[in-house]
Amino acid sequence: MESEFERLRKKVENYPSASAYNRLAELARLNGNVADAERVCQRCIKEFPRNGQAYVILAEIALAGSRREEALRHLHAAVERDQRSFGGHRLLAEMASEAGEFSAALDHFRHLQTLKPGDGTIGARIEQLTAQSAAQSAARSAPATTNATTTVTMDAVRAPANPTTTATPAASPPTRSTVRTPLPRSGTATITRGAALASLAKEDGVRGVVVFDAHGRVVVSAGLPEGRAELVAALAAEITAGNQAVHSVLGQDQPNCWVVEAERGQIVAFKRDANLTLAAVAAAGVRIALLELRARQALLDLGVA
């Protein structure tokens, strides 16, 4: 354990990566050095702000110290920065379930299901929570509820509960308001998607960004003036098709990135999904490698990749 710890410590010094930081933090925690683990996580967050796992580890540390509110804060940060954070959504789901916030828990489990479609455990939890949520709704909507009726209803809620849950009806009264985490595929999707591209469009030298489908139709754009997004999408789709033809002639697989460098700027496109491509219009001096990192993160945030 110690040698692995040292190896990882040297690795993050010489070749820092989010995964190396996360493993180092986990090992520090396993060794009982919580303060060291927290320091590693904070450093990871500073260097890789989009990495959600560091926040999840901080949340686990806070939960171990019975600091629930702090844990929730870290977990919300985790899923906000990395919407594919499985650990973040999983912990939020379990915490919401334990607090009797079945609807919020369901949202998180449904999101987890999109990340791991074939996971039987998640499916079983969704079924369980759907039943609990329905019973909770029935209890809330029952008019002139007597104490006796409430007791019976809450018993019904408790019946299918996860045996590991520690929540009691007394700790989560039916009138309690639920705190929901915005999910990428929920009703707030438009705002979230716009925000994901907006951060990329604000990068130094980036003039605008557009995500388009194989037919050149704009899915979402940011930073481009009215009408320009459609123009960029239409012509970029043609360039994508042209490059696909080039690679086909050469017997290569389909391109995942193309760049058109002109005298006063460049257009860069990245493709991760079968249909969707992200194109960025940038100034001439913008480094493509850095832009690619940001663009791929934006695609992840959009749920495209």
Partner: peptide
């Protein structure tokens, strides 16, 4: 196929006032 990609790149460059195309690159695995 290359001419098609370059031509569309030049059209896009012109419409965005980026000037003449200096380089086009396309990458795959």
């Amino acid at each position: 196929a290359l001419a098609t990609a370059i031509d569309h790149g030049q059209t896009l460059g012109n419409r965005l006032d980026l000037g003449a195309v200096k380089m086009v690159q396309s990458l795959s695995v």
